[in-house]
Amino acid sequence: MSDQAVLLLRKQLKELSRNPIEGFSAGLVDDCNVFEWQVTVMGPPETLYEGGFFTCNMSFPKDYPNKPPTVKFVSEMWHPNVYADGRVCISILHSPGNDPNGYEDASERWSPVQTVETIMLSVISMLSDPNDESPANVDAAKEWRDDYPAFKKRVARCVRRSQEE
């Protein structure tokens, strides 16, 4: 299974280097390990994150594409769908099958047809449109709902820091 994962990840990396996708750039953390990627996400235009350059790591399991990678921001990130430790919480990164908590339909969760491109486009979409209904970061979601000016100010600080990194 690991050989299939290596081939697939190399193919996806090659495709992204040949045909870059607007909004992010990706590469390996270490050329010897195709399972660890570093991705720079550009803050989407016309959002609070615009102008930011946010670094995150993608860690792929050995049984990829049957299981999803984890995506974790290394840059400071304040967002309802990003845990305090930087881990991204979006449906397509949740293990395949039925949601044991009943929040997500199986069709919204991980599927082996997902690629680095579709994952990162989902992360960019998440930045553009936070889901505060089932937040990973309850404090960010509460601030988003109850004190939007403070939320904006905190995100602006994250954007500035990302530009300095």
Rank of each mutant, 00 (worst) to 15 (best):
74 V>R: 08
157 R>D: 14
8 L>N: 08
133 E>P: 00
21 I>H: 02
91 S>D: 14
160 R>H: 14
116 V>S: 06
60 F>N: 02
125 S>A: 13
133 E>R: 09
29 V>K: 10
88 V>F: 02
91 S>C: 11
90 I>Q: 03
58 M>C: 12
100 P>N: 08
107 S>V: 13
29 V>F: 00
2 S>M: 13
103 Y>C: 11
38 Q>E: 14
87 R>N: 12
91 S>M: 05
73 F>P: 01
113 V>Q: 09
96 P>W: 10
75 S>M: 09
28 L>Q: 13
158 C>S: 06
130 P>C: 10
143 E>Y: 01
158 C>N: 08
12 Q>C: 10
90 I>T: 07
152 K>Y: 02
165 E>M: 15
121 L>Y: 02
37 W>P: 00
48 L>S: 04
93 L>P: 03
132 D>F: 02
36 E>I: 06
146 D>P: 04
163 Q>I: 08
138 V>W: 00
5 A>V: 04
45 P>G: 04
8 L>E: 11
47 T>I: 06
92 I>T: 10
135 P>M: 03
2 S>I: 14
158 C>G: 05
120 M>Y: 00
99 D>Y: 07
88 V>S: 04
60 F>L: 06
48 L>Q: 06
151 F>P: 00
41 V>S: 09
15 E>V: 10
145 R>N: 13
3 D>Y: 10
158 C>V: 02
55 T>W: 09
63 D>L: 05
67 K>Q: 15
8 L>G: 04
47 T>W: 05
75 S>R: 06
155 V>I: 12
110 W>E: 09
57 N>A: 15
114 Q>F: 13
149 P>A: 10
85 D>I: 08
59 S>Q: 15
36 E>P: 01
86 G>C: 07
102 G>Q: 08
85 D>R: 09
146 D>S: 14
128 S>N: 05
156 A>F: 07
7 L>W: 10
160 R>P: 01
109 R>G: 02
41 V>H: 10
66 N>K: 15
104 E>S: 04
8 L>H: 09
58 M>P: 08
150 A>W: 03
7 L>G: 14
18 R>A: 12
6 V>M: 11
21 I>K: 09
115 T>Q: 08
42 M>W: 05
14 K>T: 12
16 L>P: 07
99 D>A: 05
89 C>N: 05
45 P>N: 06
163 Q>W: 04
85 D>H: 13
13 L>C: 09
113 V>P: 00
108 E>I: 00
26 A>P: 03
44 P>A: 09
139 D>P: 01
118 T>P: 05
135 P>L: 02
149 P>S: 09
15 E>C: 06
40 T>K: 11
96 P>K: 13
61 P>K: 08
69 P>C: 10
68 P>A: 04
97 G>S: 07
75 S>Q: 09
113 V>I: 14
53 F>Q: 14
14 K>C: 09
